[in-house]
Design a binder for these strands. Structure first.
Length: 141
DNA sequence: GCCAACGTTGGC
DNA sequence: GCCAACGTTGGC
């Protein structure tokens, strides 16, 4: 049976809280602490092998890396008992050749529907295959 | 530092 | 169930 094509996602984090370089150093991290229902639903929809753009918010405002979902959603160990938050395990794939800045994303009409622009506070969001292709192109391959 | 967007909380 | 108040996020 052929492997299912991976879906693409984007996660947002302030580099001061947890940076891409920290993920590279850790080699794997549990993406815990998401406390928003919409973001949680996106986490739940992630499958092993899906690819995840890593965006540094606030101080940098740029996509800096590409990660992969090592294991799909499982209960978030940092959640209070009785709550139903989930997390996924992310591993770094590679650092982008060139970071893709928020300005560059805004300037590209092909990315105008990107959830990052339309819902600035959402921290986990889907990226269409077409949008992923554009992001990778802007990142220099 | 400011402010807009938006999610949550609590009074009614 | 509505909505004002409040807290947080994140761009500028």
């Amino acid at each position: 049976m052929a492997a299912k094509k991976p879906s693409y996602w984007l996660v947002k984090q302030e580099p001061e809280a947890y940076s891409w370089s920290q993920l590279v150093a850790d080699t794997v991290t549990a993406w815990t602490g998401v406390r928003n229902f919409q973001a949680r639903n996106h986490l739940r929809a992630m499958a092993t092998g899906d690819l995840v753009f890593f965006y540094h918010s606030v101080s940098e405002k740029q996509v800096v890396g590409l990660a992969r979902v090592q294991a799909g959603a499982r209960p978030d160990p940092t959640a209070e008992a009785g709550e139903e938050w989930v997390c996924v395990d992310l591993v770094p794939v590679r650092t982008l050749n060139r970071p893709v800045t928020l300005g560059a994303i805004k300037a590209d009409p092909r990315l105008k529907e990107l959830a990052l622009l339309r819902q600035s506070r959402l921290s986990v969001m889907p990226v269409s295959p077409q949008e992923a292709e554009v992001l990778l192109e802007l990142a220099g391959g």
